[in-house]
């Protein structure tokens, strides 16, 4: 619901690195495991967060994407953190300090700050690993990995079609936006209302959406024809995937053990401290 869909390019960076070469199934499972671990860690498990961060940064470095690049991209989605800010003031427990805002005295709660920082770190760590995953894995490989993980074939095919036509349709949408800009007069006179009422602008946009939809449906029909011409019969068939190699299995097991270790560490240390 934010208007930030404009970072539109394939995030995959075609480099050659150990992370790139890793089997996509291993990468997808480990990335999901990483994010799940971050989610399941208790509030204030700083040591575990740090270990996860170290793992993420090491992977970023190994992947050739560069830590700085990954950090930059992972910050893009952070504005949502504002939604967590109120917890700083509303959490239960003693206050740490009190902000004076005019007539109001707003207490900053210890527990609130801990919770806020925890959410911030968990979210940030998850983002970094997601950025590394899509930066080092081409989407077709991700599709194969999803299939191996049991995502229904129909869904995999749909994701594939979607991704294939996404950029094409986005280009089309951008061309329509340009055409609209070229036709709309936008005088830079202060106080002059530009482009009619909100309802009118929404209507123009609605028509553009409609037009885009028509083109989309027509393209869908032609694609269906092209599929049928080559034997498509409504069932989704794909070539089988090769089994995981020994080193890949070892890495997968090691990675999962590491994550479980971090999770245990987080909960055990919490139990000890309290």
């Amino acid at each position: 619901m934010n208007a930030t869909h404009f970072h539109f390019h394939d995030p995959y960076q075609p480099l050659d690195s150990p992370v790139h070469r890793l089997d996509p199934r291993v990468k997808l499972i480990l990335a999901l495991g990483f994010i799940l671990t971050a989610t399941l860690l208790p509030v204030g498990a700083w040591l575990s967060y740090a270990l996860l961060g170290a793992a993420a940064w090491m992977t970023a470095h190994l992947s050739g994407l560069g830590i700085r690049n990954v950090l930059r991209r992972s910050v893009l989605a952070l504005p949502f953190v504002l939604a967590a800010l109120p917890v700083v003031f509303t959490a239960p427990g003693p206050s740490w300090l009190t902000l004076s805002l005019g007539p109001w005295q707003i207490p900053v709660r210890v527990e609130g700050v801990i919770r806020f920082l925890s959410v911030l770190l968990k979210s940030w760590l998850s983002l970094q690993i997601a950025v590394i995953l899509v930066g080092t894995t081409a989407f077709p490989d991700l599709l194969a990995a999803m299939r191996a993980m049991g995502v229904p074939r129909f869904l995999v095919m749909t994701f594939g079609l979607m991704w294939r036509y996404l950029f094409l349709l986005v280009d089309e949408a951008i061309r329509m936006l340009r055409a609209r800009e070229a036709r709309s007069i936008a005088p830079e006179v202060p106080g002059h209302r530009v482009g009619g009422t909100l309802a009118w602008r929404a209507q123009v946009t609605g028509r553009m959406v409609g037009t885009l939809f028509l083109r989309t449906l027509e393209r869908g029909e032609r694609i269906y024809m092209a599929m049928v011409a080559r034997g498509y019969d409504g069932e989704v068939r794909m070539l089988p995937m090769p089994p995981l190699s020994g080193p890949d299995r070892a890495l997968l097991a090691g990675g999962l053990l590491f994550l479980i270790g971090i999770l245990l560490l987080g909960w055990v240390s919490r139990a000890l401290f309290l």
Partner: peptide, 30 residues
């Protein structure tokens, strides 16, 4: 359909798979 192979005007309609390999393999797989 088994005898005749149709090449559509817009290759973006014909190439509906993510990679070139997947696309060329589609017919033989089916």
């Amino acid at each position: 359909r088994a005898k005749a192979g149709l090449v559509f005007q817009d290759p973006d309609d014909q190439l509906f798979s993510p990679t070139v390999f997947d696309d060329v393999a589609f017919g033989p797989i089916y």
